[in-house]
Computed example of a mutant assay.
Amino acid sequence: MTFENLKVDINDRIATVYIDRPKKLNALNRATIEELHDAFKFLLDHDEAAVIILTGSGEKAFVAGADISEFSEYSVAEGEDLAAKGQEMVFDYISNFPKPVIAAVNGFALGGGLELAMSAHFRIASDNARLGLPETSLGVIPGYGGTQRLPQLVGKGRAMEMIMTAGMIDAQTAKDYGLVNHVTPIEELIPLAEKLANKILNNSMQAISSAIMAINDSYKDGVNGFNTEIKNFGKSFGTEDFKEGTQAFLNKRKANFK
C-alpha cells in the first residue's frame, strides 16, 4: 500500500511504520489518523508482518502532537466525536492489536504523539526524546487515551503532575518512570527495535497474541483478566505451536514455530 503521510517497510517479518510529515514534526492530522488505521488493518492480514515498529521520520520528532489547526474551531459535539473516532480507529486499535507493536520514540512525543506511543505494547526511546501531555496549556485534556494509559504506566501521582503542569520529561526520566523500557542513542534506536523484534520472533506468535489479550483484559472494567488468562492458557494446548514448543524443549532443539 502507498500512503501520503506514512511510509511502511516490511523486511524479515518486521514491519516498520514511519509517520512521515517531518516538516510538520509528524503532527497527527485527520488524514494521518485514517492512514494509520488503514496501515495497521493491512498489516493485520499481511503474513510477512509479524512484529510492527512504529516511529517517526527524521530525528526531531516521533509525533509532536495533533494538528491543532484542524480542531481549533470545533464545537463540544465535534470535539467528543474527534476523540471517540480517533481512539476507536487508531489508539485502541493498536493497543489491542494481536501482533506486537513497539514504539521507537525519536525526539518529541507530545500530546497525541505520546498517546500514540502509549498505545503500543511497549516503548523504547532515543536519548534526545522529550515526552509530555501539554493539552491543559491549550485549555483541553488529553483525548486519545492519555488520562487512562499514562497512570497505568507511571502511576497516578506522576500522571497527575505531568498532565497538570503540561511539562515535558526527558528520555531518562521516562525510563525511570517506567514509561519507556530502554534509552539509546538516536542512531541505535531502530537497530535496537529490530533486535527486540527478532527476539520476539523466536517465540510463538500465537502465544504472544493470546498474552496480549490477557494482559489488556486486566485493565478493562468489568473484565476478569485472570479468566482470560485461564481460557487462553487452555487454548494453547490445542495448538501446533504448543506441540512444537514442548517437543523442541524435550529434545533440546530450537523450536520452529509456524
Rank of each mutant, 00 (worst) to 15 (best):
M89C: 07
V90F: 11
D92L: 10
D92G: 10
D92C: 10
S95W: 04
S95I: 05
F97A: 03
F97W: 05
P98E: 10
K99T: 07
I102T: 01
A103Q: 03
A104D: 10
A104L: 08
G107I: 04
G107E: 07
G107P: 01
A109K: 00
G111M: 06
G111D: 03
G113R: 06
E115V: 14
L116D: 05
L116P: 07
A117W: 01
M118V: 11
A120N: 05
F122P: 04
R123S: 09
I124S: 05
I124V: 13
A125S: 11
S126E: 06
D127M: 15
D127W: 14
D127E: 12
A129N: 02
R130G: 03
R130F: 05
R130V: 11
L131W: 00
G132N: 04
L133G: 02
L133C: 08
T136D: 09
T136R: 07
T136Y: 14
S137E: 14
S137N: 14
S137M: 11
L138Q: 15
G139V: 10
G139F: 04
V140Y: 03
G143D: 05
G143F: 08
Y144N: 01
G146N: 04
T147L: 12
R149I: 05
R149T: 04
L150D: 01
L150H: 03
Q152P: 03
Q152S: 09
L153K: 06
L153C: 07
V154F: 09
G155Y: 15
K156R: 13
K156F: 06
G157M: 09
G157D: 15
R158A: 07
R158N: 12
A159G: 09
E161L: 12
E161P: 10
M162Q: 03
M162T: 05
I163E: 01
I163W: 00
M164V: 12
M164S: 11
G167T: 13
M168Q: 10
M168S: 09
M168H: 05
I169H: 00
A171N: 02
T173V: 15
A174E: 02
K175P: 02
Y177A: 11
G178Q: 11
L179S: 01
L179A: 04
V180P: 00
N181S: 14
H182F: 10
H182I: 08
H182C: 13
V183Q: 02
T184Q: 08
P185Q: 13
P185S: 14
I186D: 08
I186Q: 12
E187Y: 15
I190H: 03
P191L: 11
L192T: 04
K195D: 14
K195W: 15
L196Y: 08
L196F: 14
L196A: 07
